[in-house]
């Protein structure tokens, strides 16, 4: 696994950018009382496709802990993000058609067909948000509001990440 210096700098910058965006800007952003934006999951989504699962899991854990620190919810974001990271290779394999592409590339819109990228982000966001909101609710009595919250937030997060990817193109 060898990354060029350029790729390392770029990945690091993007990582910091998404994390800062989450913590400083969209932390308290809620649309219609239901749609939350957890754009920080892009920190894990945009790592190069050949990143080893070990690296993914550790990165996810650290990212989750940082976000938890700012939400005062120690463990919740970390748990959801680690779960999402564990499923990332499977989703990437099934949703992204890698034939004819250079194997080691970042998941970027210009490399992928929009539909593929959308499915990839959407499914992983769904896993993350479902885990997060159920851990947060930690009881099934509030099932309907939790489901609405998950649906709305998955859409909000996915659209945000899709739009941001347009602006962070190489």
């Amino acid at each position: 696994m060898t990354m060029t210096l350029r790729e390392i700098v770029r990945t690091t910058l993007l990582f910091v950018f998404y994390l800062a965006l989450q913590i400083l800007l969209v932390r308290n952003l809620v649309l219609f009382d239901y749609a939350f934006c957890f754009v920080y999951i892009a920190c894990i989504l945009m790592l190069p496709l050949d990143t080893s699962l070990t690296v993914l899991l550790v990165t996810a854990f650290v990212t989750g802990l940082i976000v938890d620190t700012f939400y005062n919810t120690l463990g919740m974001h970390a748990a959801a993000t680690v779960l999402m990271a564990y499923f990332r290779p499977v989703i990437a394999r099934t949703q992204i058609d890698q034939s004819g592409q250079e194997f080691r590339t970042e998941v970027m819109l210009q490399d992928l067909e929009t539909g593929q990228f959308f499915r990839y982000v959407f499914i992983l966001a769904l896993i993350h948000h479902t885990a997060l909101f159920f851990i947060e609710a930690s009881t099934i009595t509030l099932l309907m509001p939790t489901l609405i919250r998950i649906g709305a937030s998955v859409l909000f997060t996915t659209i945000s990440i899709m739009l941001l990817t347009f602006f962070t193109k190489r």
């Binding site: 070990t54 550790v58 989750g64 120690l74 463990g75 970390a78 680690v82």
Partner: peptide, 13 residues
């Protein structure tokens, strides 16, 4: 590793 990290998370939660 995955199970371990999740256990730590839920311990925190």
């Amino acid at each position: 590793l995955f199970v371990l990290l999740e256990v730590i998370c839920f311990y925190f939660i």
